[in-house]
Design a protein around this nucleic acid. Sequence first.
RNA 1: AGGCGCGUAGCUCAGUUGGUUAGAGCGCACGACUGAUAAUCGUGAGGUCGGCAGUUCAAAUCUGCCCGUGCCUACCA
Length: 923
Amino acid sequence: MTDYKDTVYLPKTDFSMRAGLPTKEPQILKLWEEINLFKKLREQRKNSEPFILHDGPPYANGYLHIGHALNKIIKDVINRSQSMLGKNANYVPGWDCHGLPIEWKIEENYRKKKKNKDDIPIVEFRKECRDFAAKWMDVQSEEFQRLGVYGDWEDPYSTMKYESEAIIMSEIGKFLMNGSLYRGIKPVMWSPVEKTALAEAEIEYHDHISTTIFARFPVVKTSSDIISDFEIIIWTTTPWTMPGNRAVAYGKDIDYSLIEVTDVGENSLAKIGDKIIIAKELMADVMKEISVLSFNSSITLKGSDFAGTILAHPLNNYGYEHEVLLLEAEFVTTDQGTGFVHIAPGHGADDFELGRQNNLPIPETVSDNGILNSDLPLLGGLRVLKDNEIIADIMHKHNALIGRGRLNHSYPHSWRSKAPLVFRTTPQWFISMTTTNLRDTSLKALSQTTFYPPQGQNRLTKMIEDRPDWCISRQRAWGVPLAIFVNKKTQEPLRDQEVIDRIVEVFKTDGADAWFEKPSSFFLGSKYNPDDYEAVTDIADVWFDSGSTHSFVLEERDDLFWPASLYLEGTDQHRGWFHSSLLESCGTRGRAPYDAVLTHGFVLDQQGRKMSKSLGNITAPQKVINEFGADILRLWVVGSDYYDDLRIGKEILIRHSDHYRRLRNTLRYLLGALNEFDEKEKINFTEMPELEQWVLHRVSELSVKIQENTEKFNLHDIYLDIHNFCTIDLSAFYFDIRKDTLYCEDSSSVERKSCRTVMDILFKSLTTWLAPIICFTAEEAWQSRYKDSENSVHLQTYFKGDKNWKNDELGKKWSDIRELRSFVTTSIEEKRKVGILGSSLQAKVLIEANEESFKVLQDVNLPEIFICSDVHMDLNRNLSETKIKVNIELASGGKCMRCWKIVPEVKNNIELCNRCTKVLKFN
RNA sequence: AGGCGCGUAGCUCAGUUGGUUAGAGCGCACGACUGAUAAUCGUGAGGUCGGCAGUUCAAAUCUGCCCGUGCCUACCA
């Protein structure tokens, strides 16, 4: 017997079956670097329609986590796919550099060296922050590039570049000039020891003993006569907030008892005959606490009965003559106290909010070192944390209390000084939502923005509707200073464009440090006397920085455009970057800085739990890259529904690797089949067999779909379509059927040449379709074929099918054929199960078809489609419901030693079928 | 606690305006091939569509409640 293996055109390629991505990907990155791919693409597309995905800046303070990877991969796939549409998708990555976390890190270093932050000159401190951010920018840049993310890594943007700081200040200036930037006050956690505001994360809770008081608020005016001579009793652990009291809150559904005291204990501050009101549920506890021995309480009222009542301050007769409103509030509970809550709008979050809603005044009663203002009657000059016993004494002396005590409870302290904190109102700078109609402008801008997914619009809209004015000042060091002068006399900020311009110009050349280095006179010029003005030392909220990126990146750079085509971030950025950018841009330019917004979900572990160090369920992108490769991570992204939260874990990554293998082997098979393909082989569409025409019909169908889905950023659908196409249409159908043609047919035959023409189209289609997704593998396959490193796959555009290829009728016909084919494969399998045959080539397929099926199959080369050796089909008009009946027999004849079909002509000493004999004769 | 979401086979996902027996790929099991070979092909088993209650001739799909879960409500980004 002769071995005919050498006469068969077996697939041949150097594109390996196993990928070895972790080692191969860096080589491909190097190749791209060598040919300067990104620049080359910019040059090639410089006159094309721009697509600007404006990068939301990550914070430069650590290694990348999987969320960063997710975000940048989606961005990259979108950029690359837009590029595949022929657009100029220039992408400039950036970093957010200012802010508290970096300050903390630098401070932490100081603490280790036992240095005090306050002893370091601010400019020196800022320099260290700057160096720290610069270092992490480099680290993250490397990591992003390893993911395959392409962009202008040589010239990225950052919020701390001098030009950026200058423009940020110039943007602040716009708000200053248009009158929407104003000075107001806001309660913050304040450390009297460090004389600074603290962030939530800088606060730790320790036990603290507080003086508690039960204070009397006489009813002054009420619609409910029955309570007119009663006193409302509140309980508080912060007596020092009493000067700031402007209201008392009740719960509308709480039951309150009207109580008359009839007997009291020896040291009780209560007196017989006192008429007081407290929550019914707390009556027993309170009476015991204030040593009331007996009392009458026959009447119960609902909180809602108190609406409209006005009280007097407990020290009403000693200088605190203002009205105290009795207000309804949801946060009132009967867990503790009296069921009434004393409201000092300057000294608590709930208090402030309730005060704001009811237009209460917000008195500033405490100075920055924690001392009650000296002009306060009776209590001026006392210390808020240490003198509460004295405050209680004074109040008692003036008949303002009905009880007092002490309480050991958990209380906020500074993590630096360990000293207790207070809530205090401080002057802050706000951008008004109303004076320039910023809210309305923003809402209108949102209605003109496209959201992916659409729910985002709703979410952002709700936030803009409800949000208060934007507080943009921070009492910190590492940021863009609010370079504003305040007139000492009028307390009005100086609004002079000349001064602002002078500041901006200096920031451009010297950076924002100039604000701390140069004297006021330098900025004020000759027009103003520096002695008349105080320079603000606050810095800007970092959200203002990043909210301004559109101005110093999109507007300032020649290679970008304003507004952006797309902003794309995690769903948390509804509150963050989408939000601040919208406000900033609407406030200065009257519209959103983006045409569209895309949000993705968060990454969870395999069980759907959030990732945390304590659970030990963190998947690090670096680890995935080293074990699987970046292309697998990229496949994970597009293989997931990233509009929702995504899960990741070992099994999930393995599953995606399985999918990857299918794609890789499809490319590999194409490469093998196209070995030594010559353009001259190409066959015209109309001359191709119907099967080839059908494949091209599918290509054109898919091509349109991919085009549309790219325009809608529907990466997930693109991927599903490609994968299903490779698996169902190609591997399990077209490739399987055409093996005989490809391997055994005469190389000059129309059939084989048609097949290879189609294979060529498939290769170009798949590599360009896949290039945005598995950017490394697509390049590897492309280079494996064309061996022309200058001509990267990423310089191409999507392969587009010829319009003539689309033929829905043909599509329908072949999907019918495939349905009938599945009856045949099932029947063959049954025979295989019982050992009658192995290879389907051993089979002769006998078909009885109803009229409809007969019509579909009659002019089809059935042995080819069924991959069997013989088919006999009869029309059976009696079948109607059943489309076809299939029977399988062994084909008669001998096995051709070359193509392995069973044919009658192979017998005795004849080894080859007629076809193979003919093929060999001409070669 | 409120605002915005999510919950379909072991995994990743499809499921049109409610309309036959809820689909695909991977994995798994079994088998075939040994000329895509750590590949390829075929067959098959997997689901009370988170739960309960409604609306309807008909619910994965609409409504309500519940359960689970994520993001947001920070001088974090």
